[in-house]
Each structure stands twice: as C-alpha cells, then as structure tokens.
C-alpha cells in the first residue's frame, strides 16, 4: 500500500507536467495518413508530407532480396524529416485524416494518438541537437510498420535557414500550377509521385492486390474519361482506403500522377477513344475549384 502511494505521488507530478501544454514557443500540426505523416508549421505557413525513404521502401517489399542490414536506418528513414529548433517549447497538435495513428518518438518519452476529427495536444522541448527516430504506434492497416518519424533538432539559426528554404519550395510548387508540361516531364514526375503515394496499395506494376486494392493497369477508370479518372484521385472514395488526394498533392503532382496512370503499364494502348492522354495542372486546378462533384 505504501509502495503504491510512493509510486502514485511522483507519477501524478510527472503527469501534470506532461499535460501542461500551454504557452508554447511554436506549434506543429501532425497529421497521420495511410501511410505517411504530414507536418504543418502553423506559425510559418508551410507544410509537407514525410514518407518512408525510397531505399527502405524497396528493401521492405516481400522477398525483395535486399538485406535490411545493408540499408542505412532501415525503416527508420524518411524522405523529408521534421526539423525543429533546440531549446524551444513545441506544442504538437496530432490528428489524422483516415484512421487512427499514433505519433511516437521514443526519445521524447511519450506518444499521442492521431485521431480523425480530433486534435490532441502534447509538448516537448529538445535540448540536445540530433536526429531522433520513431514510428507509428497504432495499428493503421497494411503498411502500419512503414510510416516512420524522423525528427531533426538543430540550432536556431539552422532552423531559420531551413524554414526559408521550405517556404521557397512551397511557392515554387504553387507557381507550377500555371505551367504546361510535356508528356515526358509529366511521366517522369508522375512515376515519382506514384511510387511514394500510390504504389503501397496499387503496387508498382499497377496490378493492385485482388480483393483489396483494384488494379490500375487496364482499369476502366484509368483508361476512360480524364475527368472521371481525376475525380477518383482528387476526391477518393469515402469508406474505403482510397483517400482524397486533392488535398494532399499539388496540382502539378496530381496532373503528373494521373497522366502517369493513363500511360504506364500499357494503359496508353487501351485508352478509350477520344479520351485525353494527359492532364495539365491547370485542368486539375479548375476541377478542384469546382468543388465536390
């Protein structure tokens, strides 16, 4: 009994401190997606997705033949890490767009569920510069094991430089929306976008997984009218794992991935008569502006 009380007192003290999320120096919104994270820097006005690094992704395929031991930070590396300044009280606002995830960096000493429709808040102050790694901790479907978290804590000045760089990137991609691309440019870009965003379900060869994820190779939608195809990608399908990518990708990325799907895997041979071969960012922007179909 005394031992229990002896444990309860410090536990209570720590818990109260952990739940005191007031007065942060900065805020980052963390959104879980199947199966990647999005980070929005609320005070700086930019955000980005963070997915499993390409080399890990290749090695983790069933019987890939690549030894995990040869991949640096296997399954614990991302394409775009979260960067934060040291010595600042950061409030993390966690939420999710599809199913429940849980954002966990063990070195911070806590995890917080990311729940669709809810925003949870937690805080951390990192004093040591360095790279901290973690993973999604709540079962979120097929690729739950493959949505790591990499957090890079850097000195204030380095952080400032990084923010400027990211804001620039964001502007660049916004201006792309008005450009016109060639088929080759769209295909090259589209393959990249497809690999990071779509291949987990629809598979690299577009063959899908029977019973779970439809094949895109030869799919009536991917070889039918462009608008119908784009609608499926932009708005997804409620109640299934097919998310609304209109809110996740830029207009240029969307145009690229849709064009890629229409021309890869022999789909170009099967395109319905009079169906457009490619889409441009401007077409997508128009369709998005029209709103929900």
């Amino acid at each position: 009994m005394l031992i229990l009380i002896g444990m309860a007192v410090p536990a209570t003290r720590v818990l109260i401190a952990m739940e005191s999320t007031g007065n942060p120096d900065m805020q980052i919104k963390v959104t879980g997606y199947q199966w990647k994270w999005r980070y929005d820097y609320l005070d700086e006005g930019f955000g980005f997705f963070s997915s499993l690094a390409a080399d890990s992704n290749e090695a983790r395929q069933l019987r890939s033949g690549i030894s995990p031991h040869t991949v640096p930070n296997y399954l614990l590396e991302v394409d775009e890490p979260l960067v934060v300044p040291v010595g600042k009280k950061i409030r993390f606002l966690t939420t999710a767009s599809d199913v429940i995830h849980s954002w966990w960096v063990p070195a911070l000493g806590w995890k917080r569920d990311a729940i669709p429709g809810f925003i949870n808040s937690s805080w951390a102050r990192i004093d040591e510069p360095g790279v901290y790694r973690g993973q999604c901790a709540e079962l979120c479907g097929r690729d739950h094991a493959f949505m790591p978290i990499v957090l890079r804590a850097v000195e204030e000045q380095e952080y400032r430089d990084w923010v400027v760089q990211m804001q620039q990137k964001q502007q660049d991609s916004a201006s792309e929306a008005n450009q016109t691309f060639s088929l080759d440019e769209l295909m090259a870009r589209g393959e990249q976008v497809y690999t990071t965003n779509c291949s987990a379900c629809h598979q690299a060869g577009g063959q899908g997984i029977p019973g779970a994820f439809p094949a895109l190779a030869g799919s009536a939608i991917a070889t039918g009218a462009l608008q119908e195809h784009a609608r499926k990608v932009l708005y997804g399908k409620a109640g299934t794992a097919m998310a609304a990518f209109g809110v996740q990708l830029s207009a240029a990325e969307l145009a690229a991935v849709i064009t890629y799907e229409r021309n890869a895997w022999g789909n170009d041979q099967q395109l319905a008569e009079a169906a457009e071969r490619m889409g441009q960012p401007a077409d997508i922007a128009v369709q998005l502006a029209q709103g929900v179909p």
Partner: peptide, 13 residues
C-alpha cells in the same frame, strides 16, 4: 529476421 520473407503485411495483420 528483419525484412519481409514469408507473408504480406495484410496477411500478417
């Protein structure tokens, strides 16, 4: 062992 040798993640789940 690390790496996926035998089953798909969905079947594992």
């Amino acid at each position: 062992h690390p790496g996926l040798q035998y089953v798909e993640p969905q079947f594992f789940n």
